[in-house]
Nucleic acid binder design. Sequence first.
RNA 1: GGCGGCGUGGCCGAGUGGUUUAGGCAGGGGCCUGCAAAGCCCCGUACGGCGGUUCGAUUCCGCCCGCCGCCUCCA
Length: 459
Amino acid sequence: MLRLHDTATGRIEPLVLRDPGQVSMYVCGLTVYDVPHIGHGRFALAFDILRRYLEFSGLEVRYVSNITDIDDKIIARANEEKRTLTDVTREFEAAWWVAVDALGITRPTVAPRATEYVDDMVTLVADLVGRGIAYETSDGVYLSVDAVPGYGLLARQSLDSLRAGARVEPGEEKRSPLDFVLWKKAKPGEPTWPSPWGPGRPGWHTECVVMSLDLLGDDFDIHGGGIDLAFPHHENERAQAVAVGRTFARHWVHNGHVMMGGEKMSKSLGNFTSLTDLLERTDGRAYRLLLLRSHYRSQVEVTPDTIADAEEALKGLDALVRRFHLEGVPLAATAAQATAEGADAVAVASFRSHMDDDLGTPAAVAGIFELARQANLAADAGDNTEGRRLALTAAVLCAALGLRLHGRVEPDEATKAKADARDAARAAKDWARADALRAELEADGWHLEDGPEGGQLHR
RNA sequence: GGCGGCGUGGCCGAGUGGUUUAGGCAGGGGCCUGCAAAGCCCCGUACGGCGGUUCGAUUCCGCCCGCCGCCUCCA
C-alpha cells in the first residue's frame, strides 16, 4: 500500500482510494506564455513517476493535467508581438508536448484547456455569488475567504496569521486582503467572455476546480503540483469547491523546486533554464535519473555538473542492456507480471517497499544499481543465465520509473563494414589497422567494445 | 513578522539511536584486455557549532550559526 505525504496534514498518510483499483489524479499544468523551463519538467516528471508507480502496482490511473491558456502574461505577450492569443498559446502548448515526449513522460489521459471551460467557470462563480460567499466590486468578483471553513489548510496556517503576512495593494476594494479574484472585468484590449457581471475573463484559481470536478468527479484521489502552488492556488481552489458543498481532493501532493546556485529557479528571478534548451543538449533520461536520485519533495540542484553526473550513471545502466542483449525485450508492466515472468522477487519487493514509503526513489534507484552489480558479478563468474535474469529485473524496475534503457544500435552498412574489417584486423593481430578503424568509428560517434562475439557498437 | 524545510565524505544525494556498508559521479590501486571499452575487487572512514537526554547520537531535545522555501505571479 502506497503511503504519500499529504500537504493538508503535513504527514505521510496511506493513499486511500475513492474507488478501489482506480486512481483519479489532477496535476496543475502550466500557463502557456513562453517555452517550458526545467521546473515544469520537474513537476511533470515527479507526477509521471507517481503515475507509473501506481500503474506498476496494478492500479488503473486517470490522469488529468490542464493547460492554462488565458492569463495576463499571455495577453501581454500577444499584444506585444501583435499576435492572436491562440497563436501564442498553441505555439507554447506544442513546445510543451514536445518536451513531455522527449522526457519520456506519459501524456495525461485528458489535458483540458481553460478556455474550453469558461462557461462552467461562470456558473461556479455565479453559484458562489448566489450563496453570498463571493461579491462584486468595480473591477471583478472576489471570494470572501472568511466565509470558507478551514481556509489555510494547505498553508498550514491560521486565517489570522495569513492575514498578518498578506500584502495589500493600494486602491483595492477587497473586503479582506486574502480575498481572491474569481472573475476579472475586461479592460480595453483584452479578450472577453460574457458573464452576469459584464464581459471579462476568469481568475486563475477557478479553472482547476471546474475541470478537476468535471473530469474526475467529486472526491477525486490526488491533487498535485509544484510546492509553490500549495498556497494560494490550491488553497483557493479548495475554498471554492468547499464553499459550494463539493468534496474536493482526498490527498494533496506537492513536489519541491529546482534550484540553481542555491536559489529557486524562476522566471521572475531570471535564472531559469528552458527545458527545450536542456533537451537539445542532453538525453532527457538523464534529467529523469537526476530527479529520481533525490526525493520528489526536496529541492534539487540542477547544474551542468549534476546533469553530467546523471548522464554518466545512465551509461552504466545502458551497458547492462548491451551486455545481456535486452534490446527490444518486452518488459513486464506490473510488479505482479514481473515476478510471474521470473524477475527477482526479492528485488521487486524491496523496490516496492521503498516506493511505497512516499516514493523513495533514491533508495529504489540504489537497489537497481545494486541489482546491476549483482548481474555483472554473476556473469563475470560465468553464470550468464542468472546475470541476465537480474539484469532484466533491473530493466523492468527502471521501466517502472519511466527510464527506458538503451542497448546496441543497429549500424548502417558502411559502419558495419568498418566494424567487420576491424574484427578481421584484430583476428590477424594487425593492431595498427584495428586501432585506426576504431578511431574512425569513434570519430563518427560510434563506441566499440570488443567481446567474445566480436566488436559491439553503440552510440 | 508568521509558517515550514535544510546544513552528510572531492561533488551530487539517501538514511539511521549502537554491531558491515546507502547509491551515483569523480579520484587512487588492482584484476581482465593486444591496447581500449565495459565489468569486477579494494581504498578515503562523512554527518554545521555548543549543550542536554542516553550505557551510546550524525540520528532525539534545546540553543546558536548559516542557507532555502511559502506568506505576491510562479511548477
